[in-house]
Every structure is written in structure tokens, then in C-alpha cells.
């Protein structure tokens, strides 16, 4: 099936089997291998990308369902010589060991800060009718869909907290 979408600002035309997930389209067809395949079942978050500004698991959606959509992957957030502030903070705080979960962690954390800014509540938000705060508890809960086998969690929270404070 023929389709197109925009990836990191560039229009991409593809012809794909209907079974192709968005993750496989990005990795195998567009060779954007930053997004990782951990579980392929929505359980680990390694495949997290932004579609229309919202984070999703690219492994649990079909490429054909994204005709015309705007997709941002880790490659679109920053580059080695021009790091996104979140990427720089992960480097500074050692927010990884093997690095496999890291692109997903970074895409997710950028979105998490947007979600808090937009006032979207979470499971740990005490008052549903108040704006959620930028606390470590909020960050941990909102990042629970990103698993890190190396257990870099506390440094990840430090990195996100620093970027949150810079933005505040």
C-alpha cells in the first residue's frame, strides 16, 4: 500500500505491506534506527516516538494508520553536534548504561514535560482539579512506560528534573 508521512520535518513516501508497524517502517524502511525494538508489544517503551506532538509506542501501531501524520523520532530531537537539552542532560547525569532504552526514554521525557505543562494529571496527582506539579514522584509515574534493564532510573529522573528546572 502506498502512503506518506512526515518524519522529522521531511516528507517520506513509502510502499508497504499493510502489516508493517510504524516502528518497522522507521527502522527497516527509512533506516532511522534510533527508535529501538525491545518487546514489540507495548511493554517497554524503547520504541517511543512522537506523532502529532504526542508520545506513542511505535510498535503497536501500523504505518498505514499514519497517512499524512507528523512524526518526530530521536533523530529529529537533536544531533551529535547539536544535542537537544534533554539529550545533553542524559549525558551529563549518566542517564543510561547500555543505551538501548535511551532514545525511548528521551522522547518520552520530552513529552512528559509537555504533558505536565499542559496540565494533564497523572496517577500520583493529589488533586485532580489542580495543576500537576513538577515533582520527582510525578516524573517517575509518568515515565513508568519506559523500562530500563540497566536500572539507570535515578539518573534519568535527575536528568529530567534538571531540564524541567531550566524550562521553569
Amino acid at each position: 500500500m502506498k502512503l506518506f508521512f512526515t518524519v522529522n520535518g521531511e516528507r517520506r513516501d513509502l510502499e508497504l505491506d499493510t502489516r508493517t508497524t510504524l516502528l518497522d517502517a522507521l527502522r527497516e524502511h527509512l533506516h532511522l534506527t534510533g527508535s529501538k525494538k525491545g518487546c514489540d508489544h507495548g511493554q517497554c517503551g524503547a520504541c517511543t516516538v512522537m506523532v502529532g506532538g504526542r508520545r506513542i509506542n511505535a510498535c503497536l501501531t501500523l504505518a498505514v494508520m499514519h497517512q499524512g501524520d507528523e512524526i518526530t523520532t530521536i533523530e529529529g530531537l537533536g544531533s551529535p553536534d547539536k544535542l537537544h537539552p534533554m539529550q545533553a542532560a542524559f549525558v551529563k547525569h549518566d542517564g543510561y548504561q547500555c543505551g538501548y532504552c535511551t532514545p525511548g526514554q528521551i522522547c518520552s521525557s520530552v513529552a512528559v514535560l509537555e504533558e505536565i505543562k499542559a496540565g494533564i494529571p497523572s496517577h500520583v496527582t493529589a488533586d485532580l482539579n489542580a495543576r500537576p506539579g513538577l515533582t520527582a514522584d510525578e516524573i517517575r509515574e509518568r515515565m513508568s512506560g519506559n523500562i530500563c534493564r540497566c536500572g539507570a532510573y535515578s539518573n534519568i529522573v535527575d536528568a529530567i528534573t534538571e531540564v524541567a528546572e531550566q524550562q521553569a
Binding site: 507495548g42 508520545r55 506513542i56 518520552s108 497523572s122 496517577h123 496527582t125 485532580l128 513508568s144
Partner: peptide, 18 residues
């Protein structure tokens, strides 16, 4: 509120977005 709370107790941020 019980509906907001139930939704927020389920799945992950990425999954709830979809």
C-alpha cells in the same frame, strides 16, 4: 473523578495517548 482516576491507573502515558 472516579473515571479520571481509573484511566490514569491503567497502562502507560504512551498507551493512553493511543
Amino acid at each position: 473523578g472516579v473515571l479520571s482516576r481509573a484511566l490514569l491507573a491503567g497502562a502507560s502515558g504512551q498507551l493512553r495517548n493511543k
